[in-house]
Amino acid sequence: MRIAIPVDEQSMESGVCPSFGRAPYFLFYNTVTEESYYLDNGAVASQGGAGIRAAQVIADHGAGVLITPRCGENAEEVLRRSEVLIYKSIPGTAKQNIDAYEAEQLVLLSDFHPGFHGHEK
């Protein structure tokens, strides 16, 4: 199983980024091989649809699980249709979140915000 986490820094000790679509990096972690790699989030500078693009990257990299503090409706749509499960992150590092997931201590994220697109005036 491959896990994806939005992170502030390219480190297992990094905190989980409070934003999903606008996170600077994504951490991908393989629970079988215990290998990990980081990816720059190309969606970070998107004018709009950052959540959709970020979710696309998660799906394209074959992740089965996303651990994130929050997620927008559009990203959720892409992830659900791509059969990626979304778990709510806990305070702490990326590593602590992976450990919590493996110990089955994380819960599925259930509230998805309507996004921030088009709300500027």
Binding site: A43, S46, Q47, G48, G49, A50, I52, R53, A55, Q56, A59, D60, E77, V78, R81, S82
Partner: peptide, 13 residues
């Protein structure tokens, strides 16, 4: 460029 299309299960959405 607006990310209005996603690629889900090999089809645009």
């Amino acid at each position: 460029k607006f990310n209005a299309l996603a690629f889900i299960k090999s089809k645009p959405y």
